[in-house]
């Protein structure tokens, strides 16, 4: 990297002491001269709160560490083999994947639609942006409190609307086959604003020339959308989709508050299972093993994405 040049130059020319002879000691030159002192605070917190827990978690996953007991024994890969045979791991993994599919698809498509509509240049840009992005700013608890009320069986808005339309009420959070869809709807409402902004930014930076040329050649609005704008957005879509899949796989907060994984475990994602096993069941070692297996799975997403993109290019 070329960035090193000025500091080398500085190290060589820094002999004239400027403010007080002591400050330009050899020690001072070494420490500030090569820039190491700037990264030291980060190294400290990074080592303590990132590297340490990662290593510690790996170690714990090989032990029977418990929240309740002091003694910890090395158990090798027992936790991992147990996880592979644990039906709850598989069912929560299934729930996570199901949630990821039914939330990611609308989170990408609705965001794209919103961005295209706002970008089409209707008045009130500021108001549209605010309406779509505002929910993204809400703490998860606020979102779940509002939606718990909307989904409330007798008085909630959702069932009251159905009632006025003459339809039967739905057990939004109590029906096993509906609950995950309700969680997904909440998630789309909550977080679509971020994807919307990414798309909007991409649209605003597209060169207008192709579009203008096509318009001059008489291509209609739909034609230009399909043949020019959408193809130009392909890279953005790849990015948005990958970020979204990663975020959806990590779902925990809203489900934990909204349904606690219920009814009958039908909405419990992997991370809630980790939480239940570790903090309610006290089995920290086993919880670590499950979360490391899950992390290995998550890492695959960008790798798959890279493969796909390389093939396309």
């Amino acid at each position: 990297m070329t960035t090193t040049a000025p500091l080398d130059a500085q190290a060589r020319t820094s002999s004239p002491p400027v403010s007080g002879g002591g400050r330009r000691s050899a020690l001072g030159r070494i420490r500030t001269g090569n820039g190491l002192v700037f990264v030291l605070p980060f190294l400290l917190v990074f080592g303590l709160f990132m590297v340490w827990p990662i290593v510690q978690g790996l170690w714990m996953s090989l032990t029977d560490r418990s929240l309740a007991l002091r003694d910890t024994h090395f158990v090798g890969f027992d936790n991992y083999t147990e996880a592979f045979r644990d039906p709850d791991v598989w069912s929560s993994l299934g729930n996570t994947v199901f949630f990821t599919v039914i939330s990611s698809v609308p989170l990408v498509l609705v965001a794209l639609a919103m961005a295209l509509l706002v970008h089409s240049g209707l008045a009130g840009q500021w108001a549209w942006r605010l309406s779509f992005f505002a929910p993204y700013l809400l703490p998860v608890t606020v979102v779940t409190m509002i939606w718990t009320w909307l989904y409330q069986p007798e008085l909630g808005m959702a069932n009251q609307l159905l009632d006025t339309l003459g339809m039967a009420p739905v057990g939004w959070l109590s029906d096993e086959s509906v609950a995950m869809w309700s969680v997904a709807a909440l998630t789309v409402w909550w977080t679509v604003g971020f994807n919307f902004l990414l798309y909007l930014a991409a649209l605003q930076s597209l060169p207008a020339t192709f579009d203008e040329a096509a318009a001059l050649d008489g291509a209609g609005a739909w034609r230009r959308l399909w043949s020019i704008t959408l193809p130009q957005l392909r890279r953005t879509t790849g990015l948005v989709a990958m970020l979204q899949i990663l975020a959806s796989l990590k779902v925990f907060d809203q489900i934990y508050i909204l349904t606690k994984g219920g009814p009958n475990g039908s909405t419990r994602p992997v991370l809630e299972y980790v939480y239940d096993v570790g903090f309610t069941g006290y089995r920290l070692g086993y919880a670590s093993a499950v979360s490391y297996l899950f992390f290995a799975l998550i890492i695959l997403v960008p790798l798959v994405q890279l493969r796909l993109f390389r093939r396309e290019d």
Binding site: P53, V274, F295
Partner: peptide, 19 residues
């Protein structure tokens, strides 16, 4: 540092609590 961007914070919750 770049690799650490990939690490989901949820992975660290159990060991961090232990710490």
């Amino acid at each position: 540092t770049v690799a650490a961007i990939m690490v989901p914070p949820q992975l660290l919750v159990v060991p961090l609590f232990d710490q």
